[in-house]
Structure formats: structure tokens, C-alpha cells
Amino acid sequence: MTASATIVRRSVGRPRSEATRTEILAATVRLLETQSVQSITIEGIAREAGVGKATIYRWWDSKALVVIDAFMEHHLVKTPMPRDLPPGAAIAQHLRTLIREYAGWSGRIVAQIIAEGQSDPTVLREFRERFHYGRRAVVREVLEAWRQESNIPVPTHIETLSDLLYGPVYMRLLLGHGPLDADFANNHINYVFSLLGVDLKLLEEGTKRVTQPRASHKAPAKRSAA
């Protein structure tokens, strides 16, 4: 066999298509708009995406992994950590956005993934590794930057502070004992910031003054003497 024949033979076969992968995730999101995580199937996802089951299994070993990646594709772009704000203000804005998203579709899917993980530890492990650890690392980075700027008067343990900020959101999400609404977001963020010795209102007002574009003031034209 010649070298050229070897190259041709190795190139035979359909390469993985990112467009197909994206469509599978989009199809999963569409199904999750009307169905629960527990009720959808690989067969249903394949049918909705117009692909075979084997295509799905090229990227994912289970339905749960498809769902987690579909959630991330849909959710992360809607809850970014602002990079154009000081750390404290960025955390506050991120929490407000997260709470708003968790009040809807994103929250329903997260709750169902966590619920499924109670009977299948693999699902919970994959959710932590694919989503939670990455998001937590971003939060930890911003909190560390905030502490280094000495804008947190009270000594803090970053991991505990992260739990304090985000734990009540997940408690309301999973237990449903209170709404995930704007009042909760404002009250919760204000309360935690006050424990840290930070006045959230002053912090955000200061941020607005710094980031607001200055109006240009042109000197009035001098009138010529009559």
C-alpha cells in the first residue's frame, strides 16, 4: 500500500461537525422548554435534531451530559461576570442576573439536574465538573480581587463568602419557600454586603460616576467687539 493510499483511507469518514453539535444542543433546549429532564430521551433529542443516536454518542455518553451542556450553552451567555466593573459591583450585578435567570427556564433545568443527581451521583459529579467548578472559579477570582483592593473591611474567607452569596439562591431554587425576584435579589445582596461592612448603594453610585462618560463642554465662542 502506498503512502498516498494510506492518507486517502484515513481521511474516509465524516468528520465531527460543530454545526451538528450545536444543533443537537439547540434541539435539547427546545425539548426542555416543554418537557422535564427526566422525560426527554436520547431518541427524542436525535429526532428533534434530525440526526442518528450514534451521532449524539460521538460527543456525549449519556442524556444527562447532553442536558448539562445544553444548559450551559443557553445559560452562561445570559449570566456573565461583568469585566468592566469593579469587583464588588460586578458580583452584585452578576447575582441579580443569576437570580432573574433562575426564576425561569434556567432555574427549572438546574433544579431538575440536581434532583436527578440525587439518585445518580454521576450526574451530580458531571454537573459540578462541567458547570459549577468553572463558575465558582470565576467568582473566586473576582472576590479575591475585591479583597486585594481592600474594599472589604471585614476579614473574609473567600470560599465561605462564596457560599454565603450563592447558597440562599440555590435554597430558594430547590425548596421554593420564597420567590427568586428583584426584592429578594436586592435584600439579599444588601444584607451580605452590609455584613462585609460595604455600603452597596455608595459602591454602585461610585461605579456609575466612574464609568459614566463625561459630557464634552465646549468653550463658548468669543464675540468679536462691535
Score class of each variant (00 low, 15 high):
T79E: 03
R9G: 05
A219W: 13
E126V: 13
S224A: 15
L196T: 01
D163N: 10
W146V: 01
M1Q: 14
Y191S: 09
D120R: 08
R96V: 06
V154L: 08
K63R: 09
G13K: 07
N190R: 10
Y57F: 14
E48C: 04
I109S: 00
A226G: 11
W60H: 06
M72P: 04
R135A: 12
L85D: 06
A3Y: 12
I56D: 01
R100W: 03
N151W: 04
H217C: 09
V169T: 06
E48R: 07
L143V: 04
E141L: 03
R214N: 08
R214S: 10
G117Y: 01
E23Q: 09
A46N: 02
T207L: 05
R21H: 12
R16W: 02
S216N: 11
R10H: 14
S36T: 14
T6G: 05
A185S: 06
I158R: 05
R223N: 04
A221L: 14
V66L: 02
Y57R: 02
H188A: 01
I109N: 00
I114G: 00
E116T: 11
R100S: 10
L32K: 00
R100T: 07
R30D: 11
V12L: 15
M72E: 10
K78A: 11
S194G: 08
F71L: 14
R14V: 11
E101A: 13
G178H: 09
A182T: 11
Q35W: 12
G167I: 04
I152T: 04
L203T: 02
R147Y: 10
Y166R: 04
P121D: 11
D199P: 05
E129Y: 13
V139A: 10
S216A: 09
V198E: 13
Y102K: 02
H75F: 15
P168C: 05
R14S: 10
V138Y: 02
I24Y: 00
T28Q: 00
A64S: 12
L180S: 02
V67C: 01
T22E: 07
R136G: 08
S39I: 02
R100Q: 13
R14F: 07
L175V: 09
L161P: 06
Q212R: 15
I109C: 07
